[in-house]
Nucleic acid binder design. Structure first.
Lengths: 234, 234
DNA sequence: CGACCTCTCTACCGAGTGGTAGAGAACAAT
DNA sequence: ATTGTTCTCTACCACTCGGTAGAGAGGTCG
């Protein structure tokens, strides 16, 4: 509200509406004029704050990544402590995209439009903590808590894909299931629950136990029947 | 080659290049001029075969759906007979998008750009056989072969999402895993294998047995046995 | 006051878009 | 030869795009 912050405030409004319109219509499909009108200004005024459309695109991307960087510490903390690691990391990540599906749509569109430009961003913002989770998975494999035949890197990629694409397409996707008088939010909730179930089932040997945060013994597995003696070296 | 089929041949070429460019750059990002040049003709010539850009878009979509309709019978046959139902349906569907990732990219873009227009197409071409698979899942739940806590509709949606988005983003997605001197195709193969593993693990109580098409006993309810004694798989 | 700064505006530009008009080439049927 | 069909072309249209020029409004500071 102060005079000093007025310019920054307008820039934030521009970023917000640009994010929404880029997510809805794509980068080429959303015109600077439409974005400016949505903010309540004219196109040249918008170009005063962002010198070009491409600069606005980078701003939108950076804006989303800055929000992402806010959740990363919680993610890392969850990934390295406590028995409920999986639940925390999965729900935090899912919540990030679910709270604003435009993030997922934007990310998906950029991955389709500019895969090579997105590569360094992915390597910088996602790869580091996926590596940590990979180590977590491998440790779980040694302990027999997670399936031995998991390909950790591929598994994580699929789970991220599931969350991002799932949240991005949540509006389109309800068409696959007959209405059945259920509300949109209820269906979305069903999908989230099932998504987490699939992720757990794909990871843990005993999903129910992992869900309760039960610590599996390091020496003996909790259940009588475990893997046969000759574990195939993987 | 014959004079009679010349026009149809050109139309097919237009559809092919339009599919490729729509998938790569999006509908608004791919111009009629570029598509025409790719075919080797001029823009008005293209507009002789397709009266408008939107008609071309519908043609591209119908063309893809016609290919999809070719695999549906095999899908239905696989879904209603034999013990290897899951493997057959999953690999057929996956192969459809994997053999031409442009199909997945195109579908993804259309779902993002025009969710409401895609709804009837989904209902017509996908919903029927997902219902069949849902029944198959519920029957498996009664028999104790598949997890009791599955939400069948949501599970199928997630698996389709995994296949479509996974194949659409296969090029971008390799950035998540460090190069490690592996070739692109090798990485893609790893992803496919892991995708099918996740799908099996999310579905079957005993994935290894299901993979071999082993009929689990109908008498015994879901047993606490997690994995069969032998794991000769792989 | 005048100089400066921040921000918005109208008017305009060249380039590219989807689409049209209409001429002509090639060929078939009469 | 004539007519008609199928197909491609050049030239052109109105429109939208991203971006620029430049004036002016409002405020701050000397």
């Amino acid at each position: 509200m102060t005079e000093r912050s007025k310019g920054a405030d307008i820039s934030q409004q521009i970023l917000a509406h640009a994010t929404r319109l880029f997510a809805a219509r794509g980068f080429v499909g959303a015109s600077l004029r439409d974005i400016a009108i949505a903010v309540g200004i004219r196109k040249p005024s918008l170009l005063y704050h962002f010198n070009s459309k491409d600069e606005l695109r980078r701003g939108v991307l950076e804006n989303m990544l800055s929000h992402w960087n806010e959740v990363v510490p919680r993610l890392l903390k969850a990934a390295t402590s406590g028995p409920e690691q999986f639940e925390a990391v999965a729900t935090e990540t899912l919540q990030f995209f679910r709270s604003d599906p435009d993030r997922a749509r934007l990310l998906l569109r950029e991955l389709l439009d500019r895969p090579e430009e997105m590569r360094p961003l992915i390597e910088q913002h996602v790869q580091p903590w996926t590596k940590i989770i990979c180590d977590y998975i491998r440790k779980g494999q040694q302990q027999g808590r997670v399936h031995a035949d998991i390909d950790p890197e591929a598994y994580i990629v699929h789970m991220i894909n599931l969350m991002v694409s799932g949240m991005a397409l949540v509006d389109s996707i309800v068409a696959l299931v007959p209405p059945e008088s259920e509300e949109r939010d209820a269906i979305a909730e069903r999908y989230v629950v099932e998504l987490l179930r699939v992720a757990r089932a794909g990871l843990f040997v005993d999903p129910a136990a992992a869900r309760q945060g039960i610590d599996p013994p390091d020496v003996f597995p909790p259940t009588p029947v475990r893997q046969s003696s000759g574990d195939p070296a993987e």
